[in-house]
């Protein structure tokens, strides 16, 4: 199941974890990504906390934790090949987060709602 945030992240439920990346729309807006700083695994994060730094040729931006929880894995290969975010943003995941009790994907946008937002 894919869900989307207002910050142009995609969220994919896998077991009891959520995998997080950015949408094609976001990667196109950012331009060529040249640097990614990922969080430490095991870090406890609050919803809305800045967890990833993305630097493109144009600017720096942050990826926020969509829910409160614990970072269980990061895609460390992205640090060496940040351009994957532009080439295949839906495959270039950043981190997995195990949500704290009660936090899940309810309330995030589905594909149709997200497409409507970016068309808006």
């Amino acid at each position: 199941m894919l869900r989307y945030t207002e910050d142009h992240e995609w969220l994919r439920a896998e077991g009891d974890e959520i995998v997080v990346g950015i949408t094609r729309h976001a990667s196109e807006q950012l331009g060529d990504v040249v640097f990614i700083e990922l969080p430490e695994t095991g870090r406890e994060v609050a919803a809305g906390e800045e967890v990833v730094v993305i630097e493109s040729v144009k600017a720096a931006s942050d990826i926020l934790a969509p829910v409160a929880g614990t970072i269980t894995a990061v895609n460390s290969g992205l640090a060496d090949t940040p351009g994957e975010v532009n080439e295949d943003p839906m495959a270039a995941w950043f981190f997995r987060v195990k949500p704290a009790d009660g936090a899940w994907l309810d309330g995030f946008m589905d594909e149709a709602a997200y497409q409507a937002m970016i068309a808006g």
Binding site: D32, V34, G83
Partner: peptide, 10 residues
């Protein structure tokens, strides 16, 4: 034009 479809790096 800030960039064309190929992007700044290319």
């Amino acid at each position: 034009p800030v960039q064309y479809p190929t992007g700044v790096l290319t």
